[in-house]
Amino acid sequence: MAFDVAADAYDRFMGRYSVPLASELLEALGVEPSDRVLDVGCGPGVLTRRLVELLGPAQVAAVDPSTPFVGAARERLPGVDIRQSPAEELPFADDSFDAALAQLVVPFMADPAAGIAQMRRVTRPGGAVAATAWNHAADGTGPLSPFWRAVSAADPGAYDESDLLGQREGDLVTLFRDAGLADVRQLTLTIEVTHGTFEEWWEPYTWGVGPAGDHVAGLDDAGRQRLHDRARELLGDGPITIVGNAWCAVGRA
């Protein structure tokens, strides 16, 4: 999966949607000023930054397996304990945090069940564990769903993200309950982003980020132009307003 990319590319591809999602997540959770919180799969630091704004750098820790993302997050957020690590092997002691959060990460964990179990382990009894994932099921309403619909129209039967665990209704809840979390509930978080032009919307898909970037990178010139044109037929010249929904599961350790 293409996440060993420059942080700026990720920011302009997914950051345009994950920044407002981070605010929605923290508003739903009601993080307390005294909480110590872990951001699992922090990427270049979108959710981590919002946590630092609320809590201060000493109260925040973060992990990510991507070398360029960890480097960017450390540069952007001095004073935060940011470590290179997969979710399945969190380098912290039991009960180290009041909350552990994973924004848009579960579908890309090598072992989602192990990742959620680790989040539970490092969270104190009664503390919150939460995760989000875009609704990218086959009939999904995530912010990348218009792109995947264009892919389907241009190349019927092509791979999309709909089979990744966590992106269907109930997936995250099942993972949380299987990990032994209590009081598990599902929320739907919604973001809205307007792109001034079609090209502003399209260009970040050509930068090789994530499954969508993998798909575009694997096309020849004719295939890429066909997808570009099909997407433009579906979305128009702009402005383009993207309304995206994310599943959110919240439980207690």
Rank of each mutant, 00 (worst) to 15 (best):
I191S: 04
V37H: 02
P143C: 09
E161A: 15
V37E: 00
F92M: 02
A114H: 08
G127V: 07
M109S: 06
Q167Y: 02
P146T: 01
W247P: 01
A87M: 06
R74Y: 12
D35F: 15
D95T: 04
A113K: 11
E200T: 09
G166Y: 01
S162K: 13
D178E: 15
D111C: 10
A217Q: 13
A72F: 05
P239M: 12
G196D: 15
A7P: 07
R149S: 07
G238D: 07
P68M: 10
E75R: 15
S66D: 08
W247G: 02
G210V: 11
D160I: 09
S145K: 06
L189G: 05
R121W: 08
F97T: 07
G218D: 08
G15I: 03
A179E: 06
V250R: 03
A58F: 05
T188K: 13
V193R: 15
L234P: 00
A58L: 11
V31F: 04
Y17M: 13
P146I: 02
R49E: 15
G115V: 05
G238E: 07
G236F: 06
P112I: 02
G208Y: 09
Q103T: 06
R74D: 03
E200K: 05
M109N: 12
D39T: 11
Y10H: 10
P57F: 01
A138C: 00
V216Y: 08
V151G: 06
D221K: 13
R149C: 01
Q59D: 10
A22Q: 06
A137S: 15
L234H: 08
D8R: 14
D35A: 15
A58R: 15
L77E: 02
Y205K: 10
P65N: 07
D98V: 01
A137D: 15
G208I: 11
P107I: 14
V37P: 00
